[in-house]
Amino acid sequence: MASVSTITPASGVSISLVQFNSVVEGEGFYVSHNDYDAAIYGGETTALVFGQMQAFYILNGDHRDAYSALVPAGFDACMAYFNANIELANKHSERPAQAI
């Protein structure tokens, strides 16, 4: 679901900003949940994104709770979760060489 925020710059004109993904930031990576682009991905997805969008590891479904608990432990912990759930990988996901 999209979230909407309003900002008001010095001009005084309010501007609405729409954000379709919720994001949890990690150190050198982030986790992005998307329930908006179902036509592209086939449904709700959660992506583990490495670096500056250098790699996208996408799982079908909502994995925010699991990833949120793992983000403080770092990218490797999140990648281990992705590998443990590789059967849920989206058709647009990159596949790591070390996937189990």
Rank of each mutant, 00 (worst) to 15 (best):
M1G: 15
M1E: 14
M1S: 14
A2Q: 13
A2C: 10
V4D: 00
V4P: 00
S5V: 10
S5I: 10
T6D: 04
T6Q: 07
T6V: 13
T6K: 09
I7E: 12
T8G: 01
T8N: 09
P9N: 12
P9H: 11
P9A: 10
A10L: 09
A10R: 06
A10K: 08
S11Y: 01
S11K: 04
S11R: 03
G12Y: 01
G12I: 02
V13F: 07
V13M: 09
V13Y: 06
V13Q: 11
V13E: 13
I15D: 02
I15G: 01
L17A: 13
Q19G: 13
Q19V: 13
Q19K: 15
Q19T: 14
N21L: 14
V24N: 05
E27P: 02
G28I: 13
Y30V: 03
S32R: 14
S32I: 09
N34L: 10
N34M: 09
D35L: 02
D37K: 06
A38F: 11
A38S: 15
A39V: 01
A39P: 01
A39S: 04
Y41D: 04
Y41R: 01
G43P: 03
E44N: 09
T45Q: 03
T45D: 04
T46I: 06
L48N: 04
L48A: 09
V49S: 09
V49D: 07
V49Q: 08
V49A: 10
F50Y: 15
F50G: 03
F50S: 13
Q52R: 12
Q52Y: 08
Q52C: 09
Q52A: 11
M53N: 12
M53Y: 14
M53K: 12
Q54P: 06
Q54A: 15
A55S: 13
F56I: 07
Y57N: 04
Y57A: 06
I58D: 01
I58G: 04
N60K: 00
N60Y: 00
G61L: 08
H63W: 10
R64V: 06
R64I: 05
D65L: 10
A66R: 02
Y67L: 07
Y67K: 01
Y67P: 02
Y67S: 03
Y67W: 07
S68R: 09
S68H: 01
S68Q: 07
S68C: 02
V71Q: 09
V71C: 10
P72A: 15
G74T: 15
G74N: 15
G74L: 15
D76S: 14
A77D: 08
C78I: 14
C78P: 03
M79R: 11
M79G: 07
A80W: 02
A80E: 14
Y81R: 03
F82M: 07
N83G: 09
N83S: 13
N83V: 08
N83E: 13
A84Q: 14
A84Y: 08
N85C: 10
N85E: 12
I86D: 14
A89T: 00
A89D: 00
N90I: 04
S93R: 04
S93M: 04
S93I: 01
E94N: 02
R95I: 04
R95H: 01
P96S: 04
P96L: 08
A97H: 06
A97Y: 07
A97C: 06
Q98K: 07
Q98P: 01
I100T: 00
I100Q: 02
